[in-house]
Amino acid sequence: MMNEQTTNWFAACRVEDAVENGGVCVKYRDEQIALFYFTRRNEWYATQNECPHRKQMALSRGMIGTSAGEPKVACPFHKKTFSLRSGECLNDHECAIRTYPVKVENGLVYIGVGQHEPTLNSVPASAPSENHVTL
């Protein structure tokens, strides 16, 4: 299980820099991470910024919402939708996106980037909801 010891928390931005009910793009080393502030549900999510469908750096600019209670983001290019919790594509099962845990402390938003690429073995069967864990 991913826990505080193995998680490398990266300070992404201040709460007020994030967009309410929408996403922003965070630069972490050479990676691009989409950070979503789902204000209506008081939830934070982070995923890869690249939409795997046409490999476009665009998910942070997509609309977020829910489908039967499942939080999701729709890519602005072709409206593929992905679960913000699991990263699963909700239109077909061909592709999925990576998700990251998020926490907020003292007005700062942190994304859990992990010291090492976690392997599949390190993924818990059911992740606690504040650790929207890593595939």
Binding site: V19, E20, N21, G22, Q56, M57, A58, R61, G62, M63, I64, P76, F77
Partner: peptide, 21 residues
């Protein structure tokens, strides 16, 4: 009025998104 994130992506950035972003 916080309507920006309720706009379709093109309206949100007042421009048409094209291949490559």
């Amino acid at each position: 009025r916080g309507n920006d994130t309720a706009q379709d992506s093109n309206d949100r950035f007042l421009a048409n998104i094209q291949k490559g972003g």
